[in-house]
Design a protein around this nucleic acid. Structure first.
Length: 576
RNA sequence: CCGCCCGUAGCUCAAUUGGAUAGAGCAACGGCCUUCUAAGCCGUAGGUUACAGGUUCGAUCCCUGUCGGGCGGACCA
């Protein structure tokens, strides 16, 4: 059983109807949760705007809207305040009934909108190197969005657009041949960063090697079997590194989601030829270039978007054009999300403009660059360690788990060591992910070990802790009548239910704005309200219908926290 | 030179897209464990939302300008 409307949507529909009856056809209701407790539970802000547009007195219009407003069985109080706000307090019996429906539902009563096919391009590491902290954001933001959109009933196709093609693979495969004379492949590639550095060094030191590397690029691109085999071996080892990180992170990407740059290689000449045929690409200084007048260069002329270099090589512009054509033409995407850092904003604007002009994407398809800010160091410069390297993702996660283990052992020394490690993994990795996901993705943010590895306050462990508290109460309660009508007498119980019932609105917001931090904020607020309830409303010590009612609130809270954290890719624990 | 993003409490971040008295966490200070896990709860303090104008019933949000940061801008991605 699912609700066909959230409370917010229900109120919106009712207020819109009332506005229409009051002579404001088409006016928006603008419902939001109440800004302050004394304003009730929800407020409608639309009257002021409607009155302004019609040059009428907003207070009077609010009067006539409220007179037409039918909230029988929904609200216990409707008031007009300030310049024309309509404040709505919901009837506790209505809340209780909605909560009961959510409890009885398999999926917490989440609505299922008309499903879209959504292609999400995320993670997309460069396989020439090891994943570093910079890859964290794309990976976990994309993963969270994929989970949320699937939960809402959309058909999500993940595309891990790995960097598995390009000139550096000539150098790497050539170097692989050299090192294999001495050691075995696994050993040599145990540390990819090191391997890359050594290969680069050879390039700089030895002209003969550099020539060989260039020759290998040509061979690889020409389909040479031997170099191709080396390339595949290298990728295999590199993918294992990535998969280890995905496993630790709890990210759902699999081999089936791989669709690397190399897979578009064969399509690139066709893309350029097609752009030429359509009169979009022209030869300029030996390169194939599309001039887009939407974008001006420094002389105020149409800016160049190069799709083939002078030397005949292709660029990521070409690859991305092939990819978007594939995603829309063959995967039939209604919406394509690119979870790629903000610096590539201009590239995506050009890509989107050109792919529409070339007819690869029609107007019904939404192309969205889900850009995120770069990670900065504490000096506000792009994040690097003291030695100038970036921090490897595996090292960050390992550090987080170890610190969490120390803490778990302090708090709960009686637990078996293996159990403590299990908790430490969920807590440590959860903390890192939450620290990142809880921030607005658009702005740059400062990397700090302290805040990534914090376990108090607005952090994943706080949410996990709230879950274990609810779970423990339920375990200790034993059997209870789970269909007892809810009695929401205490205000804190009403507020808890109100928050519980806002999950669907939150997920809609996350899906619309591609912004997982709204879900973090929601879950934090839920945990705060639950903790307040937990402190003020004894559950196991209460009796009869009240006990059963409170146990159901624990149950709905536990399920909501588990679901919500699950959508962020963060594990919950029965004990911590 | 042009373009995009950003500037909010000491620090790290929010603010449901123009709504009411700008909210959290950390750090600081004070209180609460013979009552379901104190990774918790309650309280105090902390703000001219970079600055100056403008638009209107109302601006952190929109417009103009200034200052300060980050990033892009023909052959890396």
């Amino acid at each position: 059983m699912t609700q066909d409307q959230t409370i917010l949507q229900l109120l919106d529909a009712r207020v819109v109807a009332a506005l229409a009856s009051a002579g404001c056809d088409g006016a928006a209701a603008v419902i939001t949760p109440a800004a302050r407790p004394e304003f009730g539970d929800y407020q409608a802000n639309g009257v002021m705007g409607a009155a302004k547009a019609r040059r009428q007195n907003p207070r009077e219009m609010a009067q006539s809207v409220v007179a037409k407003l039918d909230l029988v069985g929904i609200a216990s109080k409707v008031e007009i305040a300030g310049p024309g706000f309509i404040n709505i307090t919901l009837d506790p019996a209505f809340l209780a009934a909605r909560a009961a429906t959510a409890l009885a539902s398999e999926n917490l009563g989440l609505p299922r909108p008309a499903a879209q096919r959504v292609v999400i391009d995320y993670s997309s590491p460069n396989l020439a190197k090891e994943m570093h902290v910079g890859h964290l954001r794309s990976t976990i933001i994309g993963d969270a969005l994929a989970r949320v959109l699937r939960c809402l009933g959309h058909d999500v196709i993940a595309q891990n657009h790995i960097g598995d093609w390009g000139t550096q693979f000539g150098m790497l495969t050539a170097f692989l041949v050299e090192v294999e004379k001495g050691a075995d492949t696994q050993m040599a590639l145990a540390d990819l960063e090191d391997f890359y550095r050594r290969a680069k060094q050879r390039m700089d030191d030895d002209p003969t090697f550099a020539d060989m590397a260039r020759e290998y690029v040509v061979k690889l691109q020409g389909g040479d079997a031997r170099v191709g085999a080396l390339w595949r071996r290298f990728l295999e080892v590199s993918m294992h590194h990535c998969e280890a990180v995905y496993k630790t992170l709890g990210v759902g990407l699999t081999r089936a989601d791989l669709r690397g740059e190399s897979s578009y290689n064969a399509a690139l000449p066709g893309i350029v030829a097609d752009l030429q045929t359509k009169g979009l690409a022209v030869t300029s200084d030996g390169a194939e270039v599309v001039f887009l007048e939407e974008f001006k260069n420094k002389d105020g002329e149409a800016q160049a978007y190069i799709v083939r270099k002078q030397d005949g090589g292709y660029l990521y512009s070409t690859t991305d054009l092939a990819a978007v054509r594939h995603r829309v033409g063959e995967l039939h995407a209604d919406r394509v999300l690119y979870v790629v850092d903000q610096r590539q904003g201009l590239h995506f604007q050009q890509l989107f403009t050109l792919s529409r002009r070339a007819g690869y994407v029609d107007d019904r398809v939404s192309l969205e660059h889900v850009g995120f800010g770069v990670m900065l160091g504490e000096d506000n410069r792009p994040f690097k360690t003291r030695s100038g390297d970036t921090v490897k993702l595996v090292d960050l996660l390992e550090e987080a788990v170890e610190r969490a283990f120390v803490l778990v052992s302090e708090k709960n020394p009686a637990l078996a060591e293996e159990t403590r490690w299990e908790i430490a993994r969920a807590v440590g990795v959860g903390a890192v992910k939450y620290a990142d996901l809880s921030k607005n993705r658009a702005s740059d943010y400062v990397f700090s070990w302290a805040s990534m590895l914090a376990f108090d306050g607005n952090t994943a462990p706080y949410l996990q802790y709230a879950y274990t508290r609810a779970a423990k109460v339920l375990r200790d309660a034993g059997e209870f009548a789970a269909d007892t009508p809810l009695s929401l007498d205490a205000r804190v119980e009403q507020v808890l239910v109100l928050q519980l019932l806002r999950l669907a609105d939150t997920l809609n917001l996350v899906a619309r704005d591609t912004a997982p931090h709204h879900l973090c904020a929601y879950l934090f607020e839920l945990a705060v309200v639950f903790s307040r309830f937990y402190e003020n409303c004894p559950v196991l010590k209460s009796e009869g219908a009240l006990r059963a009612s409170r146990l159901q609130l624990c149950q709905l809270t536990a399920r909501t926290l588990k679901t919500g954290l699950g959508l962020l890719g963060i594990a919950t624990l029965e004990v911590m």
